[in-house]
Amino acid sequence: MPDAISYDNVSFAYATRATRAGAPKALERVSLTVREGERLGILGPNGGGKSTLLKLTLGLLPEQTGSIQVFGMSPATARAKRLIGYVPQRVDAELSFPLSGRQVVQLGAGVANKPWQRLSLEQREDVHQALVTAGAQSFAERHVGAMSGGQLQRILIARALACRPKLLLLDEPTVGIDPAGQQQFAELLRTIVQERSLTVVVVSHDLRAIAAGCDRVACLSRTLHAHTAPEGLTPAVLAEVFKHDVAAIFGELHVDAHKASSCEDPSHHHGHHPGKPTGGAT
């Protein structure tokens, strides 16, 4: 089976004054293979290059060094063939716009249609199926502004599924979603992968988002630090990835980290104690 995505020694720097003056690149020497049918989580701090990696995977930024192949094609080609479905952070959508959930999904299916082409019967069926898979049928006719965070996320997932992609990219899927919704989100990911034999990549700074729904986790902070099963995410690994961020996020993380890793080694605690309230560890 071919790989869904292969990153081969990918580096990327934005052309800013700081970068030219020698500031670190956004991404450095990232090599990673995502197998077809896999659910990969990419965990990393804000500013760790996650969005850059997503944009490169979508072909929205040019590769600078190294190469990326999506189903054996260049990312831009794969996107043009509509093999990649993308689910953005929901907070960015303009919720005052007068659209129903179904209309949003229809836009995902028909956005590349010629102006005189109506949505084909097949496309309408795709929209229907996408809503069913995403579990969004019951509120599909509601205005997007009247939906809960979790409901809107399902609509955005359905929109990505409506063009029958083979790869689904999700950007920070748990931002603004309550814990119950996050649990449902993990189940939803499982359903989608089973029903559609999709490859899924979830990018997040939130360990819970990734630990619950993914088979494998890669930690990204400018470069890849580890990739492992979610159980392998020991505080030591997390501390390495998040470095300065760790104090800030550990307040939320320590419970999950306890659960996730029973083989915690006290000697690897870099100045933080999972059981204690955090603060001042940087």
């Binding site: 979508l58 996107r79 043009a80 990649i84 993308y86 953005p88 960015d92 959508a93 956005v111 997007v144």
Partner: peptide
């Protein structure tokens, strides 16, 4: 108009 951030990924 609805989702500016996601539009490049959808070819807009």
């Amino acid at each position: 108009a609805f989702d500016e951030t996601a539009s490049p990924a959808f070819g807009v």
